[in-house]
Structure formats: C-alpha cells, structure tokens
Computed example of a mutant assay.
Amino acid sequence: MASPGATKRLTKEYARISKSPPPFIIAHPSDSNILEWHYILTGPPDTPYEGGQYWGTLLFPPNYPFAPPAIRMHTPSGRFQPSTRLCLSISDFHPKSFNPTWEVSTILNGLLSFMTSEEMTTGSVRASEQERRLFAQRTRWWNSTGGGTRFSGNATPAGGSRGVGAIKSGDGGAKFRQEWPELDEENLRWLKERKIDLVTGAAPAAPHCLPEVAGLRRRPNTSATGVDAVVQGGQQARDVGQGLLGKHKWKILTCLILGYIMIARLLGDGNGE
C-alpha cells in the first residue's frame, strides 16, 4: 500500500505528465494501484526502434520518492529481456543512487536514453540492427495479441516466474488491453488494414514479377550507377529480346517463307502480263 506521501507525489506527477508528456513517452498509473505505472515508449526516428510501440511497467515502492521503482519492458525489443527487471541507476537495483527529486518523466527519459545506447546491464541483450527493426515492426501485434495467443485459443493468465509485474506473451494481450484499451483498438485496426496474420504476426507475401519484367530489374550483387547502369539495363533488355526471339523463332521463320512465296507469285503474275 502506498504511503500518503507517495500517493500525493504520484498524483501530482500524473497530472504533470498527462498535461505535458515528454517526447516519445506516455504513462499512467493503474486504476487499481497507484504504485503500478504503465508506460509506452515510441521508438524515435533514426534508431532501430523507429515507430515501435514499447510497453512496460514501473512498480514504485510504498516510500517513493525515497526509493526507486522496479523497471520492466514487456514488449520484445531486441534490447531488453521481456518482463525482466532492469539494472539501471534509476531502478531498484541502485536505491542509494536514486535522487528524490527525480520524477516519472525523469525515469522514463533515462530509460529511453539507455535503450537507444549500446551499454549493457542486467536485463539487456545483444541483437543486430536488422533484428531490432524486425522486432519494432511486430510490437503492435505482440502487445495486442499477446504474441498471437489472443486469437489462437492458447491464452493463459498473466504473470509467472519472473516475479510480480511480469507479463508473459501467452496472456493473449489481456493486460495490455486492460491498461491501454484505446491503443489496443487502434492496433487491431492497424493490423487488419495491413492484413497481418493475428496468430503468427506475418505480413502477406509480396507479389512476384513476370519473368520478362523481372529480367529488366537489376541483377543480384550489382551496384552499377550512371553510364554503367544504362549499359547494364540495355544489355538486360537485349537478353530479354533474344529470349523472346529464341522462343518464337519457328513462327517467325514460317512467316518469312510464306511472305517470300507470296511476293514471288505476285512478281510472276506481273511478268506474265
């Protein structure tokens, strides 16, 4: 249970962060527990997380602001282990270094800054930039479907071996839906508009080009530009033309012979007159 001081402080902070949210950050306390806050970090531009929707929780101690919260990020990101307590200078791993003047916005700005760095700590993971971009593309799907379990019939209650506040993907997105109902509806519309498979998170396959058109595209492992690109494009066009000529050479030869016979007959008739 929150102390009167913690309740008063967090109520004021919620009013401030609602009125003037920091860039790429929104947050609110749970209706049932003011010590449990839910946040969304939007991946900033020019980072591997661009456009991603990263949901997590802050669990404050009853004596806040004299001790820091436990920090978790539930959405898989390629940066943190999902639903694992993060060891940061602003988290409950380092209570002695926490400054009581720091607020929720300070904590979340610090988390976002750490996320976009490459510094390692307890709860962080290594991944390539491409892997993190793929995670970013699937964040809305993961949040609103619980990793697809919402529509697969395999959803289980939230929580588990990672401690109080942990969220497993198998909860069917129930906890996210409870805390972010409007975002959940927006996510489902977004997924349906893009025809994302709600169970697997897979996007529809791109259509294939016809062979003749595909031949005009740049060949693999080439990087020609300028004049070289024009020459290469011309060669590819000739290759396609030669392919079509080879395919229809008998028809063309037959037409030439018939044409020759018709011309010979016309000339012969003219000489007879």
Rank of each mutant, 00 (worst) to 15 (best):
M1Q: 10
K8V: 13
K12P: 00
R16P: 05
I17E: 03
P21C: 10
F24Y: 15
I25P: 00
H28R: 13
S32A: 09
L35I: 00
H38G: 11
Y39W: 14
L41C: 06
L41W: 06
D46V: 00
D46E: 13
T47K: 00
G51I: 07
G51A: 11
G51M: 05
G51V: 05
G52R: 02
G52W: 01
Q53F: 07
G56W: 08
T57N: 13
L59W: 00
P62L: 02
N63V: 12
Y64F: 15
P69K: 10
R72M: 13
T75S: 06
F80D: 04
F80V: 08
P82I: 02
P82Y: 03
R85P: 06
S89L: 14
S89M: 14
S91Y: 04
D92Y: 07
F93D: 10
N99H: 04
N99R: 03
S105I: 03
I107T: 12
L108N: 05
N109Y: 01
L111Y: 11
S113V: 05
F114C: 03
F114G: 02
M115V: 01
M115T: 00
S117I: 09
E118W: 05
E118P: 02
T121N: 14
T122I: 06
G123T: 05
R126S: 15
R126F: 14
R126A: 14
R133K: 15
R138C: 02
R138S: 11
T139N: 02
N143K: 08
G148H: 03
G148P: 03
A158C: 09
S161K: 12
K168P: 03
K168S: 13
A174Q: 12
F176H: 03
R177Q: 11
Q178S: 12
E179Q: 09
L183P: 02
E185W: 05
N187C: 15
N187P: 07
N187F: 15
R189V: 15
E193V: 10
I196K: 04
V199Q: 07
V199I: 15
T200M: 08
A203I: 07
P204M: 13
A206N: 12
H208P: 06
H208K: 15
C209L: 02
E212G: 07
L216A: 08
L216E: 09
R217T: 11
R218K: 13
T222V: 09
S223K: 01
S223N: 03
G226H: 10
V230P: 01
Q235R: 12
V240D: 10
V240I: 15
L244I: 08
L245N: 04
G246F: 05
G246D: 13
K249C: 04
L253D: 01
L267K: 11
G268H: 06
G272C: 12
